[in-house]
């Protein structure tokens, strides 16, 4: 009897462990990466940071793009910027959304750290961000040539993350060619 009692702590711990494991499994299934996946990119009509011209959703289409949400106040964006520069050098089309930010500051930033973006949409009020379900910067969306969102990544983009996203992006580019 005593001997069985000694297994009680282990049993309780095992039970807790299993609960955790199962619980996390459920969580993984219900939380979709984003409800926007496989849906068209939200409508927008926004100014461009670099030259002030106005672009709309139609301008996004035609070629697959990484849409990167960033801001000068966001430290992680600073950390991921170098990697974006590399991607741009490899010929990846990156469209920026300058999120809840100041156009002047954004220009200074791009001048200082390099501009990997095809162009940057200025979203000072975060309206487009809200429609994209952005929680905070940085976030990155994979948008195909038809303007459909295919994947989303929250947090900084780095070599590890890109390893997972690249096949999908290449497939999109392949389909276009």
């Amino acid at each position: 009897m005593n001997r069985i009692l000694l297994f009680v702590p282990l049993a309780i711990f095992a039970l807790m462990g299993i609960t955790f494991w199962v619980g996390l499994g459920i969580e993984d299934k219900t939380s979709l990466p984003s409800p926007l996946i496989d849906h068209p990119f939200p409508e927008f009509e926004l100014g461009v940071v670099e030259d002030g011209r106005t672009l709309t959703t139609a301008d996004l289409q035609g070629k697959p793009a990484l849409v990167n949400v960033w801001a000068t106040w966001c430290p992680t964006c600073k950390a991921e910027h170098a990697f974006l520069n590399e991607l741009a050098a490899d010929g990846v089309r990156i469209v920026g959304i300058n999120y809840k930010d100041d156009v002047e500051k954004a220009r200074d930033w791009l001048a200082a750290f390099g501009n990997p973006y095809d162009y940057n949409l200025s979203d000072p009020k975060g309206k487009l961000g809200l429609e994209l379900g952005v929680y905070g910067a940085p976030e990155t969306f994979l948008v195909d040539a038809d303007g459909i969102i295919r994947a989303k990544h929250i947090g900084d983009l780095n070599a590890d993350v890109w390893k997972k996203l690249k096949p999908q992006f290449d497939a999109m580019s392949g389909a276009e060619q």
Binding site: P35, L36, H39, P40, P42, E43, K125, K127, L130, E131, L132, G133
Partner: peptide
């Protein structure tokens, strides 16, 4: 109406 954007926004 596939053009409808997600979430109604908030009266901007």
């Amino acid at each position: 109406d596939t053009d409808t954007s997600y979430g109604k926004g908030a009266g901007y």
